[in-house]
Every structure is written in C-alpha cells, then in structure tokens.
Design a protein around this nucleic acid. Sequence first.
DNA 1: ATATTGTGAGTGAACATTCACACTCATAGG
DNA 2: CCTATGAGTGTGAATGTTCACTCACAATAT
Lengths: 196, 196
Amino acid sequence: MTAFTKRQKEIINIAIELIAKNGIQYLTIKNLSQKIGLVESAIYRHFASKQDILLGILSIFKDNKEDIMLAIQTAADSPLQQLKILFNKRFTYFSNNPAVASVIFSEEFFRNDERLSQVVYEIMETNQKIIVQIVTAGQNANEIRVDLPAKQLAFIMTGSLRLIVTQWRLSEFNFDLKEEGQKIWNTIESMVKNNR
Amino acid sequence: MTAFTKRQKEIINIAIELIAKNGIQYLTIKNLSQKIGLVESAIYRHFASKQDILLGILSIFKDNKEDIMLAIQTAADSPLQQLKILFNKRFTYFSNNPAVASVIFSEEFFRNDERLSQVVYEIMETNQKIIVQIVTAGQNANEIRVDLPAKQLAFIMTGSLRLIVTQWRLSEFNFDLKEEGQKIWNTIESMVKNNR
DNA sequence: ATATTGTGAGTGAACATTCACACTCATAGG
DNA sequence: CCTATGAGTGTGAATGTTCACTCACAATAT
C-alpha cells in the first residue's frame, strides 16, 4: 500500500530482524538505531513514532497475504488443494520471516495500543473469512464433510496453524516449520475430507 | 505447592484482577499497591520481586490443573467423555479467572525471563502430554480413529482451545466461553470419533 | 521486646520522543 | 559556471515519564 523510502524499508527490515532474534520487547529505538548505525533521533526523520514502524511491518505482511491470495485463486485447484497451498505458503513465509509471526501473534503486547491491535485483529479476521470461504466451497463441491459448520472447521484449522507457529517461535525455531506444518495439515485434511 | 500467607493470597488475587481487566502490561507494582491500599514498598514485604508474584499466579493455576486431573480420573468415563470434561472444566476455570488465561498465554511477554517462560512452557508441555495420553487410551478403546497420530490429534485440540480463549480475551470477554468452547469441542469430537 | 508489616523518600535504569544545530546535495537564478 | 536556497537527513544533548526496587525509620502485634 504505502510506498516506503529506501531508509524506511531498511528500518523495517532491521526491526524485523531484531524482533525475530530477541522478541518484540527487544525492539527499542535505541537497539534499532544502533543496529542501523544511526543515532536514536535519526529514526524519527523516517518514522513519526515507533507505532508507525510496527504498522510498517504489518503492512508488509498484508502485502504478502494478498500475493498468497492471488496465487491461490489463479491456481484453480480443488478447495482442499487451495487450503493446502494456503497453509504451505504461510509456513514458508513465516520460516523466512520469523519476526512477522512474532508481531502478528503479539496481540497481548498491543492491547494498550488501539491502532495496532485493530490492525492485528483485522488481519486475523480477514484470514478467517478466507478460510471459511474456501471450506464452504469445498463443502459445496462435496469434497469436505458437510455435517460440520464451515466456520468451526476454519477455526480449528487456524488454531492449529497458530499453535504450531507459536511453538516454533518458543523453541527458538529449532524445528522445520514447513515440515511439521505439513504434517498437521495432512491430519486435518484427513479429518475433514468427505469419504464419499 | 508453596503455602501463601493471607496477604500474599490477597496480592495474587488483586494482581489477577488487574491483569484480567487491562492486560498483563498493566500489572505494575504501583497499580497493584494502589488497588490494595498499600504503599509500593509494602509489596516487597510479601514478595521478593514482581517475578515471584507472577510465579504465584502460575502456581495457583497448577493447583487447579491438578484438581481437574483428579476429577477426570475418578470420573471413570470413556476417553472421549474425559476429554469433554477436561475441556469443559478448563473453559469454566478461565471464565472465572480470565487473568490466568492472560498470564498463561503471555509467552512472548516472558521471553526475556528465563524462569517464567520455563514455567509456562512446562504447563503447556504437561497439558499436551495429558491429552495425548487420553487420546491414546481412546484409540486403544477403539473410540477414536486410529489412522491419525495421537500426538497430532492432541495438538489440534490444544490449538483450538487456545485460539478460542485468545479470541475471547481479545473480544473483552464478550461471548460465553463455555458455550463456544463446547461447540468447538463437539466439532472436534465428531471429527476424531471412530465411526464404528 | 522482638518479629512482622507498613511508610515515604529516593535511586537508577530504560524508554520514547523533542529540539536546536550541522551537514549534504540538488537545483533555480544571476 | 558559480552560488544561494531549501529540503532531506544526521547529531548530541536533553526531557519527562514509567518502572522495579531499596532503605532508614515508624507503627503494630504478639
């Protein structure tokens, strides 16, 4: 959406690195400026506030999400295939950008910040809607069990996705997220698949 | 485990209240002492550090968890019944103690605190083990599908539980956790149940 | 009279943010 | 071609706030 200058992108990327390595609490203007090789106040030449930096991180995630959606829609596979791709791409993205996961899942941290928590909430919401939509399509195509509400199936999928990412973060990224995520998806798939 | 004095219990309870109302970031010694009607330094007559207060909250949760486990084992129902009771009791507990959920799910917040994150991790771990155990029993009793690994089924259950609690917290507790949790459980149950 | 609990003032650290000042450069006017 | 202007960017010092925690002293209770 918003166009970022070169420096702004640099700041966002280093912020992402810092969060990935040490958690969101470690993202301070001081640490950020030191890592970039500037003085603290210089950061404010590029962002009005720390909040805006975090919003910048989230906007990058939003862009990626839209890319994923496009990729899925053009790959006109079956709904179950689409979901598989969706989860897969998400895991890949988090693998390459662990900090984004840290930011996305830091709702508690943003609780006192109206703006940030709203954006995070929106991302969660949109995400959920997309999955519900695909699940519903799968039910209509008789590919997914119809005796269970799409909303709840989507919910269970999202919950599992989130938990595996959380555990991966807490383990300091010491297992292959894509691999483990794939396994979880396979299990979910065989639970929701319509056996004729 | 540890025996708390009257005042210590009072402090823990008020800390829980504060967290429930405004999130874990709102738990400061100042807010805590004001709400109790003491002066900040007085808190340190009862706890050596803020960390110890948080550990106190977690220890209370541990006690409750043990109670739940006992209740389940004595209620010698079928594994699926046991899981239903387990989830139900947990939802009830969180409904009555919203702050505990906030603390339990604040892994990111504790990331820079070795001790706290370890305790939270242990709780998560133990929890997972218990569910795996019951699921395995259910598979042995031919009540739960055997074509899916118990570990992953347990994982999906935990993920769903966590997500519903998280959403409930983020919505400022504006839906009935027990009711919605029950629905989720029913969906999970019909997915994992062995149809003959 | 002694241990327990409470008080008030204070300390030092971390933090986001501000501000006056300085440097760099691209470009418009002479 | 030179130079004046001004926008963009960087600097160093400072500000004000919040926070956990300490300590000498006082009240209270057993």
